[in-house]
Design a binder for these strands. Structure first.
Ligand SMILES: [Mn+2]
Ligand SMILES: [Mn+2]
Ligand SMILES: [Mn+2]
Ligand SMILES: [Mn+2]
Lengths: 218, 218
DNA sequence: AATAATTTTTAGATAAGTCTAAAAATTATT
DNA sequence: AATAATTTTTAGACTTATCTAAAAATTATT
């Protein structure tokens, strides 16, 4: 049996290891889990004994196949529940994460496969993140950060990098949602802020905003 | 903050205390929670310190108003989730309890109020048990056990006493569901088995079955 | 009313997950 | 290459929830 705490560690290691080729460090896990490095060392030993991670002292960890499978399943559940909350229960996209953090630990294969069907097999969650299928396959779409788009590009919003409530509310306030079409008009050399046009309206957004919004160039 | 374990103890005490006027005994809780009496004593002390139960050594416990409120809220969540599983995710009534045992601990007021609305404010769960409303009010309906019905009574099934999988599957097999109409035809003096008529078909059921099926005489 | 049976509580131990403080190893800087 | 800074691990302690075994209180039986 896997505990809730173990699941959360495995998920954290998965998210931290997704990019870089390097092992995930103790401190990185500690930061992500909001706990102390010493606690992480203890847990990492346990996860290693249970075969969820490969671990060599002082060298950080990587998920084993078994560990990765568990992580992906948790991510799948998390994102399906987020879709449910938005599509069926009228949550807004900045309210779902906290609840999904709890729901992702519910153990029932039937529950998830039926939920998936009920939601008509969604491929992405409310933040544009892909939902792994039953087999754990994740479909990658070619998205870029808005900050990397070129002047003149016509784009469509497909996801967010940061999904903090503050950022999502900012987007709501400025009528930016997934599916919104926009054009990149101008980049200010000094601060890398960019001017975008949404429908008829022009809007200036900081580099930090552009760095957290994924778009597809059309 | 209230832990998952505390919630389960409070719920157990609620269910055990629902009938009798007496305090709930340590052993009764131990049996219900599948744990040892000594563990119960420890927990009961903690619940008492936190103000969820009234406890005097060797005298058992009763829920305080605060404790009852928590218990009823858990029951409300449990039963709403059961409705969701049956109505929306095509679970059968013998499959929902285990999953609802997990879902009942998810903490989010909005989740439950929205779920309630999404399900169109159901008043009873798939086993005929009443769902407390947002204020904790429980509507009692006047149901009797089928074993208490009189010969000649026309009845409608409104609930089950036991909701074990074995019992529910027996009912499924014999086309007895909530809402099913039946007539009590005959009671055998020797073993108290009774003959009932469902639509055109006659069926003999044991006293034990009749003792676990709630009906309303129409 | 005394004794026996049962229930409940206490005492002490264990496992999971966390913490602080100190030691050890690794990495960066001179 | 030596020293300094940082990261990671270890050692020991604490909390929650559990257990077994023994003691204490209650309840039932003679
Ligand atoms: Mn999320
Ligand atoms: Mn998401
Ligand atoms: Mn149930
Ligand atoms: Mn039920």
């Amino acid at each position: 049996m896997i505990t809730l705490t173990e699941e959360n560690y495995i998920k954290a290691i998965y998210h931290l290891g997704k990019y870089g080729i390097n092992n995930v460090s103790t401190n990185a896990i500690a930061k992500e889990m909001e706990t102390k490095a010493s606690s992480v060392t203890d847990m990492v030993k346990k996860l290693s004994e249970k075969g969820y991670v490969d671990y060599k002292k002082y060298q950080g960890v990587t998920l084993t196949e078994k560990g990765k499978e568990i992580a992906i399943n948790i991510v799948r559940k998390h994102r399906l529940w987020e879709v449910f909350l938005v599509e069926k229960l009228n949550f807004s996209w900045d309210e779902v994460h906290e609840v999904a953090e709890q729901l992702e630990h519910i153990k029932s294969k039937k529950l998830i496969s039926q939920l998936d069907a009920f939601l008509e097999f969604p491929t992405h969650d409310p933040h544009g993140d892909p939902i792994p299928d039953k087999m754990g396959h994740i479909k990658k779409i070619d998205k870029i950060l808005l900050s990397e788009a070129k002047i003149g590009n016509d784009c469509i919003c497909v996801g967010v990098q940061d999904s903090s409530s503050d950022f999502l509310k900012y987007l709501d306030k400025n009528d930016i949602a997934l599916g919104t079409e926009l054009k990149v008009c101008h980049r200010e050399a000094f601060d890398n802020s960019i001017t975008i046009k949404i429908k008829a309206k022009e809007l200036i957004i900081s580099n930090m905003i552009a760095n957290n919004l994924f778009v597809k160039v059309s």
